[in-house]
């Protein structure tokens, strides 16, 4: 579905991606993991064509996304749903209108049919009863579920989740984890999850890539990664405080610091 070859991308002086290649398999859940600031959101924006790589190729659905004209890019984007970290719901519209918005913009469906579609999408995320609320009245978990309903509004072929689990209470977390897995299966989606929540992501992902310092530090099924012999991957997957990534910010030794004036 998506293949990335020799991707390099920099922000200012900093190389966020340094010649990485990866593949996203159709109808599977692929996770891209890495610490904060590793460039996970940036990668999704590159796949969605919002940013252009310095070099390398990103093929989505057989098309080089950065060589498409704007109308072609927009056509392709209708096949991609994206769930932003913050939900990205439009704050001046109700839940119902947020989900109806892309349908109204892109189709000529009569309002009665739009209503049916919106209610079905809301039902899929369990929030049919919340249709009249405004985004500011939703809890974080609900906002993400509404955003999921909006992301599947146009029946996309793939969906990208940006940190869907961050900052959720345990119950919302469980709901979101199972919802992502269910949607993937029932709608035959290709799902990409970008996250640093190891347990939740590993529980539903078919394949995982771990990013670090602009490179792919490890890849494999969740099981393969858990048994990885890379120390860095071990530290990341098992959340150890000290390891190749030191607990201490580089400094002089404590004794030297305390006893010299």
């Amino acid at each position: 579905m998506i293949s990335i070859r020799n991707l390099t991308f920099s922000r200012g002086e900093r190389k966020i991606f340094d010649n990485i290649s990866l593949d996203i398999m159709p109808h599977k859940i692929t996770a891209i993991m890495g610490p904060s600031g590793a460039g996970k959101t940036t990668l999704l924006k590159l796949i969605g064509g919002q940013l252009s790589p310095d070099s390398g190729v990103i093929m989505v659905d057989g098309k080089n996304i950065h060589q498409l004209s704007r109308p072609q890019l927009y056509t392709l984007r209708k096949k991609m749903g994206m769930l932003f970290q913050s939900g990205a719901l439009l704050s001046d519209m109700s839940v119902f209108d947020n989900i109806a918005f892309p349908i109204r913009e892109h189709t000529q469906l009569p309002e009665s049919l739009i209503r049916t579609v919106v209610l079905l999408k809301l039902n899929a995320v369990g929030l049919r009863g919340a249709r009249d609320l405004m985004p500011s009245e939703l809890s974080g978990g609900m906002a993400r579920r509404v955003a999921m309903a909006r992301a599947i509004a146009l029946d996309p072929e793939m969906i990208m989740y940006d940190e869907p689990f961050t900052g959720q209470d345990p119950i919302s977390l469980g709901v979101l984890v199972s919802l992502i897995a269910t949607l993937n299966k029932t709608l035959h989606l290709t799902s990409i999850i970008v996250s640093h929540d190891v347990q939740e992501t590993a529980s539903i992902a078919d394949y995982i890539y771990v990013l670090s310092h602009g490179k792919i530090a490890g890849q494999g099924t969740p099981k393969e990664l858990a048994d990885s012999d890379s120390e860095w991957v071990q530290q990341f997957m098992h959340g150890k405080a000290d390891g190749p990534v030191p607990f201490h910010y580089p400094s002089d030794s404590l004794t030297a610091d305390l006893f010299t004036y």
Binding site: Q50, R77, K78, S91
Partner: peptide
């Protein structure tokens, strides 16, 4: 709050 990016990704 990524509303603008969100729109772009909805092809709007």
């Amino acid at each position: 709050t990524e509303q603008l990016s969100g729109m772009e990704m909805m092809a709007i």
